[in-house]
Amino acid sequence: MMVVEVAFALPTEQKIIALQVDEECTAYEAVIKSGIVEVYPQIDPENDPMGIFGKSIRDPKTTVLKNGQRVEIYRPLIADPKEARAKRAAKMKAQKEAEEKAARD
């Protein structure tokens, strides 16, 4: 037997469940066994992306865990990271231009 954790986070809260599993337990099996889906019914273990300590895993059903690892269930992104970065850059550019204009006037 070994101890692993299953984690899920929302913008306002997070839940980490520690559980004992067999040596050959997969990430998917740990998620099911943890019961986290009962706490957060929006989790879809069949389709939601998962990772171990922030590193994405391709197939949770075949990824065997090691003692002490934490399986993370990821939520879908609300905003495209490239779009968000472009918006921040445009905002910073506009702010800088306004400051330069104010300094000239």
Results as ranks from 00 to 15, higher is better:
Ser56His: 14
Glu24Phe: 13
Ile36His: 04
Val37Glu: 05
Phe8Thr: 00
Asp59Gly: 02
Gln14Thr: 08
Lys55Ala: 11
Ala98Phe: 13
Ala27Tyr: 03
Val37Lys: 08
Lys15Gln: 08
Lys91Glu: 14
Pro60Gly: 00
Arg70Cys: 08
Ile32Trp: 01
Thr63Glu: 07
Lys93Ser: 11
Ile78Ser: 15
Ala18His: 11
Ser56Ala: 13
Lys66Pro: 07
Ser56Gln: 12
Val71Asp: 06
Lys96Thr: 12
Met50Lys: 08
Leu10Glu: 06
Phe53Cys: 09
Asp44Lys: 15
Asp59Gln: 10
Val3Trp: 10
Ala9Asp: 08
Lys66Tyr: 11
Met2Lys: 15
Ala98Ile: 12
Glu13Ser: 09
Glu29Ala: 02
Met1Ser: 14
Glu5Pro: 14
Ala7Cys: 05
Ile52His: 01
Glu99Arg: 15
Ala98Asn: 12
Arg58Ser: 14
Ile17Pro: 07
Ala18Val: 05
Glu23Gln: 09
Pro60Glu: 02
Lys33Trp: 07
Tyr74Asp: 04
Ala94Lys: 07
Ala90Asp: 02
Gly35Ser: 02
Gly54Tyr: 03
Arg104Ile: 08
Ala9His: 08
Leu10Val: 04
Tyr74Phe: 11
Lys87Tyr: 00
Val4Thr: 00
Glu29Ser: 05
Ala94Ile: 05
Ile43Arg: 05
Ile52Tyr: 03
Glu83His: 10
Val31Tyr: 00
Lys66Thr: 11
Glu29Thr: 02
Leu77Glu: 11
Ala90Met: 04
Ala79Tyr: 14
Ile52Thr: 01
Asp59Phe: 08
Ala7Pro: 10
Met92Lys: 13
Lys96Val: 13
Glu100Ser: 07
Asp80Thr: 02
Ile57Trp: 11
Ile32Ser: 02
Asp22Gly: 06
Lys93Val: 13
Gly54Phe: 03
Glu100Val: 08
Tyr28Gln: 03
Arg58Met: 09
Arg70Met: 07
Phe8Tyr: 10
Asp80Lys: 01
Met92Phe: 07
Asn47His: 11
Lys66Met: 09
Ala18Phe: 01
Leu65Gln: 06
Gly68Glu: 11
Gly54Thr: 06
Val39Lys: 12
Pro76Met: 08
Asp22Val: 08
Lys87Glu: 06
Asp105Trp: 13
